[in-house]
Design a protein around this nucleic acid. Structure first.
Length: 290
DNA sequence: CACTTGACCTGTCCGC
DNA sequence: TGCGGACAGGTCAAGT
């Protein structure tokens, strides 16, 4: 779930909810979730205020007034959920929420803010992490420094996309658009969706695609992720936004999680195959391997 | 270079 | 109902 549209949705929510607040305390029950020394946290996180929240690829960057930043990745099951001081769970709580009460058994990090609200980093599988570093070290961070251009950037045009793809003529198209060093943001759901929209088979190698097909893939990839942002992202299992609410994109998905259901173009049953080590959803008629 | 596999973890679902 | 195995949004390292 946390692919570009989901992370973007979280970042927009956090921007609205936590900017300007200062951090009172930070606690963590899993050393791998919070990759920072206690002294760094005490000196540069606690007591500083939140200046900006932004996204790079699937990473979340929270800039602090101390000149440090928290860099986070949700990986497969991470959540960043804000809970206002006066929040009441249970009766009256929105029924589209997946979060009933926090902290819960998946809460790895709890951040107390100065207005008695809290930010929870929940993560069932413990793959996600938050690191702390000076803002000027972000550009050399081991995760951030490897990322390719932002898939949705206004500066990233179809010619840039095509040129980048053609650098790897022998790689298959699904593996390539999932590769964050080539293009930052696309994950398994939106790879399957945009490849279906383009009516190509995910194992087609780049050199077999026409310039028109590559152009359509670019347009479809951006379109599907922009639509998903408008719908609050995809909730397959446990993704929630900064307020603990589900995303709605999968109600409109064409192939992802639609095994056995009819293709929206030709009514053939969607099938699931394996490509680049990932579960991959295709229409066996629309997406032929030439 | 391209591709596969396994690791990292826990929960859920499916078949027997 | 219980139990084992497969599988799940993402990266990363290592092996073929």
């Amino acid at each position: 779930m946390p692919e570009l549209p989901e992370v973007e949705t979280v970042v927009r929510g956090l921007s609205r909810l936590i900017i300007g607040k200062s951090i009172k305390s930070v606690s963590c029950d899993n050393a791998k979730s919070l990759q920072a020394s206690r002294s760094t946290i005490d000196s540069f996180v606690i007591g500083s205020s939140i200046v900006a929240v932004r996204r790079r690829g699937k990473g979340i960057i929270v800039e602090l007034s101390s000149g440090y930043a928290m860099l986070g990745h949700l990986k497969m099951t991470g959540q960043m959920v804000y809970v206002a001081a006066d929040a009441r769970f249970g009766a009256g709580h929105p029924n589209d929420s997946l979060v009933e009460d926090l902290p819960n058994s998946t809460t790895r990090i709890t951040i107390d803010l100065d207005d008695a609200s809290r930010l929870y980093f929940n993560d069932v599988r413990k793959f996600g992490w938050i690191k702390v570093m000076p803002i000027h070290e972000l550009e050399t961070d081991s995760f951030l420094s490897k990322l390719g251009p932002e898939a949705l950037s206004l500066d990233f045009g179809v010619d840039d996309f095509t040129k980048r793809m053609l650098r790897y003529p022998n790689r298959n198209i699904k593996a390539l658009i999932l590769d964050q060093s080539i293009l930052a943001g696309v994950g398994n759901i939106y790879a399957d969706e945009s490849i279906w929209m383009t009516s190509v088979h995910p194992t087609r190698v780049v050199s077999s695609l026409s310039k028109t097909e590559l152009g359509e893939l670019y347009t479809n990839m951006r379109s599907v992720m922009n639509i998903s942002i408008d719908l609050g992202g995809s909730t397959n299992k446990n993704y929630v936004n900064a307020e603990g609410k589900r995303g709605n994109y999968l109600n409109f998905a064409n192939v992802y999680a639609r095994v056995g259901q009819p293709c929206k173009r030709c009514m053939t049953a969607i099938v699931k195959i394996r490509v680049a080590g990932r579960g991959t959803h295709i229409c066996p008629i629309c997406q032929v391997l030439v």
